[in-house]
Each structure stands twice: as C-alpha cells, then as structure tokens.
Computed example of a mutant assay.
Amino acid sequence: MNIVTTVNSLDPSDGGVPECVQAMYMHLAKTGVDVEIVTGRTHPDAPVLEPTHPNVTTTYATARSHIRRHAELWEALSRRLDATRPDLVHDHGLWLPSNIISAVETHRRGVPHVVSPHGMLEPWAIQHRGWKKKAAWYGYQRSILERADVLHATAPMESQNLRDFGLSGPMAVIPNGVPLPDTWKQEPSSGERRQALFLSRIHPKKGLPNLIEAWSRVQPDGWDLIIAGPDENDHRQEVAALVEEHGLGDVVSFPGPVRGEDKWALYRESDLFVLPTHSENFGVVVAEALASGIPALTTTGAPWSILEEEDCGWWVETTVEALETALSDAASRSDSERLAMGQRGRALVEEQFSWEHVAAELRAVCEWILGDVPRPDCVRFDD
C-alpha cells in the first residue's frame, strides 16, 4: 500500500499535529505501508519532527514567503501524486491552504481522500476567530469534508461534533496513540512535597485561569504546581499575573517547553496530571500521563470519561468549582491510592492507546477504502 499524506507543518512548535503525524506514519510504515509526506517548512534548516523509517519519505516546500511556500506545496504535491500514483491521500487539519491543495488534487485525480480534522471543528475551536472560520466553512471547508471518503475522529465525542455539522459520510473513530515509556512511576513519591503537573501549550483554550483560581481555593498543603509547555500569544504572562495575584508564586512554576526524556521524567516525578481544558478532540497528554503511571484530572472538554470508568483519574465539568472539588479529592488521597490509580491508567493505555494498536486500525480502514477487507468496526455511518 502506498499513501501520500499532507500536513501544513512538521514543526514541533506547532503543537500536537506534527507529533501525531510523525508517530502515526512511523508505526504505519512498520506494517509495510509506503508513506510519502508532503509538507511545508519555513526554511531548509527549520526544526521538524520527521519520521525516521525507510518506508517514509518527506517532500518539503521551503520558501520563506507564505504565498510562495503554498505555491511550492501545490507544485510538490502535484508532482508526487503523478510520480507515485498513491492508493490514497491522508490530509491533516482544517482551514489551511494545505487542506485545499490536498482536496483539489485528489478530487481532480479521483484518488481516495481521508481527512483528520484534529479537533478543529470542536465547539471551542470553531468559536475562536469564528467569523473567519464561518466564511471558510461555507467557502470551501464543508465541501472538502463532504467529499472525503472517510473522516477520522479520535473519539466518539469528536465524531458526534462532526455529525452535528451535517457530515454524514463514513467516520473512522480511532484514538491518537501514545508511546509507552519503558520506565514509569512504580513507587510512591518520597519526601515532604508532592507535585501536580500541567504539560501542554499555554493557550487560552487550556483553561489555566480556572486552574489557578481552583488551586488558590484549595491550596493543598505540601503540593507544588508545575505549568510546563510553550507559550502562545503571551498567555503565559496572563497566567503568571494570576499566580501573583493569588499569592501562589512560591508553589507555581513555569519551566517552559519540555520534550524528549526530560518530558517523560517530569511525568514520572509528578503525582497528578491536570488538564483543565475547554476543548480537546483527544488530549494526548492525558494518555502520556497515564502511560507514565500517574492519575489524570481533566474536564468534559476532553473525551476522557474512561478516567472515572477505569478509576484512574477525574473527569469533571469545565468550571472552577468542579476543578476545586477534584483537586481537593486528589490531594487528600494517600500516595498508595494515587499510585494504584496510575497503575490502572498505565494498563489502560497499553490495551487501548498504543501506537501499534492505532496503526493496525488505520491500516484496516485504508484497506477497506480500497475494497480489500470488510468494513472495520471503527468505521461508522450516520444512521
């Protein structure tokens, strides 16, 4: 099987989509699929999360000008589609020129087209810069999604949100995967202090003002709060001002972006993961925290009801009061109770959210599109 995938960028600073694309195609390639990624890059030496597997190749459009880079991307995709004649094209994201280019070129050639919106039609996301997205929706984005052979949602909640936009075609519900670190938290924390961790983009969508307000009300004795991740639109300054306003400067810290082994070590050193988000199509950091053996606390803005179903965390409304109650409960648990919750979370990720499992399901969907196998259980229609 030969797949061409299109994505606006593989720059690690662009958040979860580049990380997802890198991991997805590394593991899909391991199943014997040949993959070519066509993407943009701000200049030839710009950082990228490029899959390193012999079955994966990457073609870059590298012009510094946005307009010229998009023109290069169009030319590159057209050349690669003519050269490789792929079985299908998988596009990532919405609203961007790369999505238009992918849709036009696949439609023109009659190549099957799969689209992963990556949460970009979630209620909070669609309201952010809403008038621009409304114009784009009626101008081109709706027709792209209606013509797609399959839409890929990462959770039933995202699938329903896509259905609410009137999209009735086949929908593959496949979670994002998470790498399983070889080392995870298997002993209770020692010493006098405990640590709660937020690790994600510092962005208004993530609900950090609510977390700071809830933390100021609980002020759990002997606990520190780490807020790690890249700053977007100077939101860190706003959050830091709230920290100072509530007198929490001694217990709240901002270490900045954390990646690689430093990231996994930070998970293991923590006793609780907190994501107070307003909206996530998946929330891969929740899965990473569970894979690291620590319980997670997130909101109904993320599709993680399984936290409570499997007793490995808390899933609460997106309000200060709900966060306050959950934080108080989490901090009052014994070290051994929190550790047991984390161990259940680790087992859950091993069973349902490994990249090997995700790659197998995605390959089955592609084979179904090509008529090679019966419809997988993860593909659903709007009945």
Rank of each mutant, 00 (worst) to 15 (best):
L297G: 11
A125M: 12
H357W: 10
L248D: 03
N233W: 10
A135D: 06
S334P: 14
W74D: 13
T154P: 14
S336P: 06
N99E: 02
V284E: 05
A155T: 13
R163P: 14
E337S: 14
Y140R: 05
Q22M: 05
H278C: 06
Q219V: 09
D34G: 15
R163Q: 13
T39G: 10
H235M: 08
G177N: 09
W264K: 06
F353G: 05
E310P: 02
G293N: 00
N2M: 11
S328T: 13
A153W: 02
V111A: 07
I227Y: 04
F198V: 06
K30W: 06
R147C: 03
W74Y: 13
A136Y: 07
S305H: 06
D382G: 06
A63R: 03
R363T: 11
P257A: 09
D234H: 15
D382Y: 11
E308H: 08
R380F: 01
R217A: 14
S328C: 12
D11C: 05
S305Y: 00
S332T: 12
T277Q: 13
A135R: 09
V56Y: 09
R380K: 15
E232M: 08
L28R: 06
I306K: 04
A322K: 10
R338E: 09
I227K: 02
Y60W: 09
E19P: 00
D262A: 15
I226S: 04
T6W: 04
T154H: 08
E238H: 11
I369N: 01
W124A: 12
I144H: 02
K205M: 07
Q343Y: 07
W264F: 11
I101D: 13
D271E: 15
T183A: 15
A331H: 08
S116F: 00
E192S: 14
T58I: 09
P54Y: 00
W264A: 03
P51M: 05
I67Q: 13
P374S: 04
A359W: 08
T6Q: 03
Y60D: 12
F381N: 14
T106W: 00
R217N: 12
L81K: 04
P12C: 02
E244L: 07
H128W: 03
L266I: 01
P220H: 03
I3G: 05
H152K: 05
H66P: 14
V17I: 15
G139A: 14
I227F: 02
V4K: 04
G16K: 01
S189M: 07
C20N: 10
Q343H: 14
L248S: 02
K133A: 00
D45R: 03
H90F: 02
Q237F: 00
R64N: 13
A76F: 07
D234F: 07
P170V: 00
Q141V: 10
A125Q: 08
V218N: 10
S216E: 07
E351D: 14
C378H: 06
P97E: 02
P156A: 01
Q195S: 12
G16N: 08
M171Q: 13
D382I: 00
L327Y: 11
A289R: 06
E310D: 13
D45A: 13
P257K: 02
G110Y: 01
